[in-house]
């Protein structure tokens, strides 16, 4: 599937997650954030780059792990990305939605 985001054609899955990280840039992130009613501040960017780093190192992301990351605690994570922070923040970061283990 493809979608126009920030004036570019971007490959996404049915849920709107980027399928090709190389197409991600800050403008794309800004627009996805806006769609999810999130206004990006420097704190958001720190968390986003942490998430991208973890993804690159193939660390499976979970709320619990993020809470223990020393980057952000769970409370703040919720305040930054309300209502389902993990799925919203990963979408903005251009990485796959974490597969919650079965």
């Amino acid at each position: 599937m493809e979608k126009m985001i920030a004036g570019k054609t971007i490959a996404v899955n049915e849920e709107g997650y980027l399928t090709d990280f190389s197409q991600w840039d800050k403008a794309v992130a800004e627009e996805i954030a806006k769609e999810n009613n999130v206004e990006l501040t420097p704190r958001h960017w720190e968390v986003i780059s942490y998430l991208q780093g973890e993804h690159k190192n193939q660390v499976a992301l979970s709320i619990r792990k993020i809470g223990k990351s020393n980057v952000v605690d769970i409370k703040e994570f919720y305040a930054l990305f309300p209502n389902g922070p993990l799925k919203i923040s990963t979408k903005i970061a251009g990485i796959p939605k974490p597969a919650s283990c079965l």
Partner: peptide
């Protein structure tokens, strides 16, 4: 859905998530 529990308040009989 999307409810990540922070605590149980047994006295007031409610569960509270990180988003409040």
């Amino acid at each position: 859905s999307d409810f990540a529990i922070e605590s149980v308040d047994q006295e007031n009989k409610k569960i509270i998530d990180y988003g409040g």
